[in-house]
């Protein structure tokens, strides 16, 4: 839901991130309110993943501040309130691990040191596996699953801690269609349960109806923040037809074809 009056769960002010001396994000402001579903969009390299990594505290800020639930991200201890799905192709490591084990590691935020899993922990883990539709595969090794199913395992892992705020970094990239639909279902269930979602996406696909608000990044800055846009407007590289404007006069020999005539809609 679009929630202009709710309590802010993420408040980013003047966020600037420098990676290896290069300013990758410059002075970005972003507020996400309780229950909102925000899509962070933009071309590759526009800084959308970097912004999410800065919001979760993975990257240090050069300037500015990030508040999560009103607490500065560096001092934020209620980690069970946030769920993070990193951008990566696989959930498998060097050793086989089954779906339940990977998902259970998302429950650690709510488990004390050396404390065995309680009944509530197991119920939350089973529920998370069920929401992404992998109950039948709970004891399969993740390395035997398809890329899309592994992505769903990572989402279930973030769900297992029962957080109120989700950060998902390109969960639908390179995912097969059945998994994209299962992903959209899982996110819809989350959103209906009242969670706030920040989703990084290059393109939305089946997730489009869920999005309340789109934030478009360009060149390390927020370029647009408002209701979702049609896909074409987001990327905005599609050059309209019509006569190309030439900056240099044509010097054509009789058998030359002008480049502007042979090229169609090129960049």
């Amino acid at each position: 839901m679009l929630n202009t009056a709710g309590t802010p769960v993420v408040e980013a002010r003047d966020v600037t991130v420098t990676l290896g001396g290069r300013p990758v994000l410059r002075g970005n402001n972003l507020t996400v309110r309780e229950g909102e579903f925000v899509a962070l969009m933009g071309a590759n390299g526009s800084g959308k993943s970097t912004l999410v990594r800065a919001l979760t505290g993975l990257l240090p800020l050069t300037q500015g501040s990030v508040l999560l639930f009103g607490t500065a991200v560096g001092d934020f201890r209620a980690r069970h309130r946030i769920g993070y799905v990193p951008q990566r192709g696989t959930a498998a490591g060097g050793v086989p691990a089954n779906v339940r084990e990977v998902v259970a590691s998302g429950r650690l935020t709510r488990r004390g040191l050396l404390r065995p899993t309680s009944r509530a922990d197991r119920a939350a883990i089973d529920d998370a596996i069920g929401v992404v539709g992998l109950s039948a595969k709970a004891s399969d090794s993740v390395s035997t699953l398809s890329g899309g199913q592994q992505q769903r395992v990572l989402i279930a892992r973030a769900l297992a801690g029962e957080p109120d705020l989700f950060f998902l970094d390109e969960p639908a990239a390179g995912v097969d269609l059945p998994s994209q639909l299962a992903l959209a279902d899982a996110l819809r269930i989350l959103s209906e349960r009242g969670a706030s979602v920040v989703l990084v996406a290059h393109e939305l696909g089946p997730l489009e109806p869920l999005v309340d608000r789109a934030v478009v990044m360009r060149g390390g800055r927020v370029a647009y923040d408002g209701p979702p846009l049609p896909q074409d407007d987001v990327h905005g590289h599609h050059h309209p037809g019509g006569p190309a404007h030439d900056h240099a006069p044509h010097v054509g020999s009789p058998f030359d074809t002008f480049q502007s005539q042979t090229r169609e809609g090129g960049r």
Binding site: T56, G57, L58, R77, R79, I82, Y84, P86, R88, A91, G93, A97, E101, V102, A104, S105, G106, L108, T109, R111, L113, L154, R157, A158, G161, F167
Partner: peptide, 18 residues
């Protein structure tokens, strides 16, 4: 459980507060 979480996905583990 903690060593497994850190060994399999350090970024996730860091966001989870480990």
């Amino acid at each position: 459980p903690r060593l497994f979480a850190v060994a399999s996905d350090p970024e996730f583990a860091k966001v989870a507060g480990l």
